[in-house]
């Protein structure tokens, strides 16, 4: 699923709404669109275990039934884990940070540690990326709250390889957004880190950031009020 682009996912989700017979609300106008808003979608080529979106409905449905119907309607690999009734406020506002894990096959953990140390030490790391507006240069350092090399011998994804370094990242939601590949560009910039094999990136969580730097499930706020239904 990591090769699915956001546009691909959005179309698949709209089809799933129809397959599951969800009474989705439509925008007004000449070409009505279903009311769906996506919060900070993962970039193409990145796996994710924590994506969030909001939908508007014409009539109330049971969140548990909605979850089951949508989950069955989506392709295997696209799983709906939870659905709650929105208590108000924008979902996007509650997404303050993302927690990522990056596997770097054929990179020695010690080499990665040195690169991370150099990155952490830098006050600012300028990186470049092609965006829809053209080539942009921005700082990839400030948004990174946490960057650690995991000490694990096992390759979590089971990929065959002699050595595999694993990086854990917590990155704040900023504009322009700093994505895992921007951090990798940053590691290249400060320490010439060139992974010989394409890194495998996965988003493990996103949500509200506490003062301690912990990520809290953004739906918690709604769950407290879920009795309102």
């Amino acid at each position: 699923m990591r090769f699915t682009s956001h546009r691909d996912f959005a179309r698949a989700f709209e089809r799933a709404l129809r397959r599951a017979g969800v009474p989705i609300a439509f925008s007004q106008g000449f070409t009505p669109h279903p009311k769906i808003s996506y919060a900070s979608a993962a970039p193409t080529g990145v796996a994710s275990e924590a994506e969030y979106l909001e939908i508007g409905l014409r009539e109330p449905v049971d969140p548990g039934q909605l979850r089951a119907a949508l989950d069955a309607a989506l392709s295997p690999g696209l799983d709906v884990l939870d659905a709650v009734v929105a208590a108000g406020g924008s979902l996007a506002d509650r997404i303050e940070a993302s927690y990522w894990r990056i596997e770097l096959p054929e990179v020695e953990p010690a080499v990665l540690e040195r690169a991370v140390a150099a990155f952490t030490a830098a006050g600012e790391v300028q990186v470049e990326r092609m965006t829809k507006q053209g080539r942009r240069t921005f700082d990839a350092r400030a948004a990174v709250m946490k960057i650690d090399v995991m000490r694990s011998v096992e390759t979590p994804s089971g990929a065959p390889g002699v050595s595999c370094a694993i990086l854990e990242l917590v990155v704040r939601q900023v504009t322009p957004s700093v994505r895992p590949d921007d951090v990798l560009s940053g590691l290249r910039a400060v320490a010439d880190l060139e992974p010989p094999v394409s890194p495998r990136v996965i988003r493990l969580a996103q949500g509200t950031l506490t003062a301690q730097g912990e990520i809290v499930d953004p739906l918690d706020a709604d769950r407290d009020g879920a009795a309102i239904v």
């Binding site: 909605l66 119907a69 069955a72 309607a73």
Partner: peptide, 13 residues
């Protein structure tokens, strides 16, 4: 329209 939620059968894999 308005037939209610349904759970589609899983695809044969």
């Amino acid at each position: 329209n308005g037939a209610g939620l349904r759970i589609p059968a899983p695809t044969p894999q």
